[in-house]
Structure formats: C-alpha cells, structure tokens
C-alpha cells in the first residue's frame, strides 16, 4: 500500500467518534483510546501511527517494539484472541514486508490490527509464546512470504511441500515459473510449456 494514505486527512481537532457518517472517499482519522495512550507512553516514537480507517483501528509499530507491545496487548489490554497473522509484500519500499496481527478482545468486543514493517531477509520474534494460535499462522506466513520467526517451535512450510522453491505471495514470484521449471525437468520440454 502506498505510503501517502497513512497520513490523516481530516482536521486534527475532529473527534473520531464524530467522523462523517458516509464520506464519499473514506479517510483515516487518528485513533485515541487508553490502549493507544498506554502504548504511546511506553514506547513513544515506537508507535508510528494509531489510526482509524472505516471504523477499524490499527497501530503501526516499530519492529523493535512490536514483539513486546503484542505481549502487553495480550496481558494488560485483554487482547486474548489472535485472530490472524499475515503479511503484505511491498517491493517498492525499503522495509518490504508489512506484518499484520489481527487481535480481538472478548472482554471489550474490540478488534484491532497491529502492523509493523520489516526488511527482506529479516526475521521476527515469534508470538507462539503469546498466542499458541500463532503457530500455524506464522508457518503460513513463512511459507508464503519467507519471513522467518525466531523462537518458533517448528518453522517449516505448512501448505506447500518441503521442496518448494520460492515464496508464492511475494510480488516478485512469477506464477508460472515453478510450472515451467517442473515441465523442463520432468517432461524435458525446453520451452517449459
């Protein structure tokens, strides 16, 4: 996702609850809540953004503080249910991968997203010790993007076979390259088709 959309467009004085009911073009608004305040007081500039978009709240955190912040979110902010862990690949950026945690709190009936950007080849601390649910989700992220999670008990591919080359959800992964290679090796057809 391009960077520019992240900057809040509406006037900063406007409270987020009173956001326009149905704007023609949805926009991000700053997100204020005790949770945000807590993380901001703890990490200061580590909290790069805390915004609301289409009624959904998310943080963008610095990679260095994210693992710790996730634990705080679980232990102190009651985000006890890790809905999903995923990533997006933005090859044009410096830090190519955006890791996304979708969290839910049963007690507060609230759903937030935590995002962080990491560079290609960088690994990230596993959150299996925070939410056991992260086990397969992180394995899938590894399988599809090649992001390694440190401290994961069983970091290996999950959906694709062991010997698969490349990580398909990277933007630079050609869909037919694997197929061509297979055809070349196994059927001996040079063109690969």
């Amino acid at each position: 996702m391009p960077e520019d959309t992240k900057s809040p467009t509406p006037p900063s004085g406007q409270p987020h609850a009173a956001a326009p009911a149905k704007p023609a073009v949805p926009a991000t608004t700053p997100w204020d809540s005790p949770t945000v305040a807590r993380l901001k007081s703890q990490y200061g500039s580590g909290v790069q953004e805390a915004v609301t978009y289409l009624g959904q709240n998310y943080f963008v955190l610095d990679a260095s503080v994210t693992a710790e912040a996730l634990r705080i979110l679980r232990d102190e902010e009651q985000f006890d249910y890790c809905v999903d862990i995923t990533a997006t690949h933005n090859p044009t950026r410096d830090k190519q991968f955006e890791l996304i945690w979708i969290l839910y709190s049963f007690a507060r009936n609230e759903r937030i997203r935590v995002k962080t950007n990491i560079a290609d080849g960088a690994s990230f601390p596993s959150s299996v010790s925070i939410w056991p649910a992260a086990n397969w989700l992180e394995r899938e992220v590894f399988d599809m993007f090649g992001i390694k999670f440190d401290g994961h008990p069983d970091m290996k591919r999950i959906l694709l076979p062991e010997g698969w080359k490349g990580h398909p959800l990277r933007k630079d992964y050609g869909i037919i390259q694997q197929d061509q290679e297979w055809v070349q090796i196994n059927l001996g057809i040079e063109s690969g088709q």
């Binding site: 996702m1 391009p2 959309t5 073009v25 949805p26 991000t28 978009y53 289409l54 959904q56 979708i102």
Partner: peptide, 23 residues
C-alpha cells in the same frame, strides 16, 4: 479507494475473515 479492511462473519465453522488491501 486505497486502504485496507478486515471483515469477518460467523461461518458455520467459526470466524471467517477477509483482510483486503486495496492499492
């Protein structure tokens, strides 16, 4: 518009969510 959304419903098997990023 550029942006992202997570929406989930109660499918017969549990929470079925879609996380969509638009450019």
């Amino acid at each position: 518009a550029v942006g992202e959304i997570y929406h989930s419903i109660e499918a017969p098997k549990g929470e079925l969510g879609y996380f969509i990023v638009s450019d």
